[in-house]
Amino acid sequence: MKLIGIVGTNSAKSTNRQLLQYIQKHYAETVDIELVEIKDLPVFNKPADKTVPDSVLDIATKIEAADGVIIGTPEYDHSIPAALMNALAWLSYGIFPLLNKPVMITGASYGTLGSSRAQLQLRQILNAPELKATVLPGEFLLSHSLQAFDQEGNLRDLDTVKKLDAIFDDFRIFVKIAGKLQNAQDLLHKEAENFDWESL
């Protein structure tokens, strides 16, 4: 199974990146996970000719070739970071790599809530007509993330690891099931291509 892990921040040092790196290493024997950075993408400016930057097309190609996607999001002001919103805006502008793509949401935060409000908002965004990802019902929340990892980058708490293992096992099953639910994909793709917010 091939997965893409999207680091949903432009921060140089982030426990969300650290969490995705742990997931990549922890499940390396069963799943191939490639981490993708969005920190250098240009700011979305809705070009009239719908020209999408090569850096975005490169990410889109990787997503399309993958069986599923993991998105790690921090929470800023009860919301996802601007960098992640920017990436999703590009990835839904005349291209549709996330359409019907199985997605698992993870999030780490310094406090107790583990980016729960940002994850809820991300679910709503991923349900937008031009995105329409297939999102795993459960999510992984990592609280007190500054204290969560040891010097080797491993999660310290055994119960946290067990919870992540359970959710990740569910996601692997979810990916296999979602891969068989393709009957409406062509129709959804056509609807996404023809969707226009300005004509509503």
Rank of each mutant, 00 (worst) to 15 (best):
L120Q: 09
T160E: 15
M104P: 03
H144K: 07
E152T: 00
G111M: 04
I105V: 02
I125W: 09
Q119A: 08
P129C: 14
I173V: 05
Q182C: 08
I105S: 02
T134D: 13
I125S: 12
P102K: 04
Q121C: 05
S115F: 07
L155M: 06
L99S: 11
A178L: 01
G138D: 12
R117D: 12
I125C: 09
T106N: 01
N100K: 13
E130H: 15
V175N: 03
I105E: 00
L146K: 01
G114Y: 02
E130T: 15
K176I: 04
Q182E: 12
A128L: 12
Q185F: 10
R117K: 14
A166L: 13
L136E: 11
P102M: 03
P137T: 01
A178C: 03
N100G: 02
L131Q: 01
K163Y: 14
R123D: 05
K101W: 03
N183I: 10
L122F: 06
Q121N: 04
R172G: 06
A128Q: 11
P102N: 05
S145V: 01
G111C: 02
E139M: 07
N100V: 01
L158D: 15
F149G: 03
E139I: 03
A178N: 09
G138V: 10
S143D: 10
L136Y: 12
F171L: 10
A148F: 01
V161Q: 13
L122I: 12
D170I: 03
A133V: 06
F171R: 11
L131C: 10
L164D: 09
I125F: 09
T160G: 14
D169R: 11
K132F: 12
F174A: 07
I177A: 13
A178V: 05
D169P: 08
P102D: 04
A118C: 06
A178Y: 03
A178T: 14
S109D: 01
T160F: 13
L142N: 04
I125H: 10
A128P: 03
P102C: 00
L122Q: 04
G153H: 09
N183C: 05
D165V: 13
A148N: 02
G138W: 05
D170E: 09
L141T: 08
Y110Q: 04
D150H: 01
V175L: 14
F168N: 08
M104D: 02
G153C: 05
E130G: 06
V135N: 10
N154G: 01
S115D: 09
D157E: 15
E139T: 10
L122G: 11
D157H: 14
E130A: 14
K162P: 06
L113N: 13
V135G: 09
L146S: 06
K176Q: 07
T134R: 04
N100M: 01
G114F: 02
L141G: 04
L146V: 02
I125N: 10
S109C: 00
G138K: 14
G114N: 05
F174V: 12
V103M: 02
F171Y: 14
Q185T: 11
D169C: 06
L136Q: 13
L126P: 04
Q151V: 07
G114C: 02
G111F: 03
P102Y: 06
A148S: 03
E130F: 15
L142V: 07
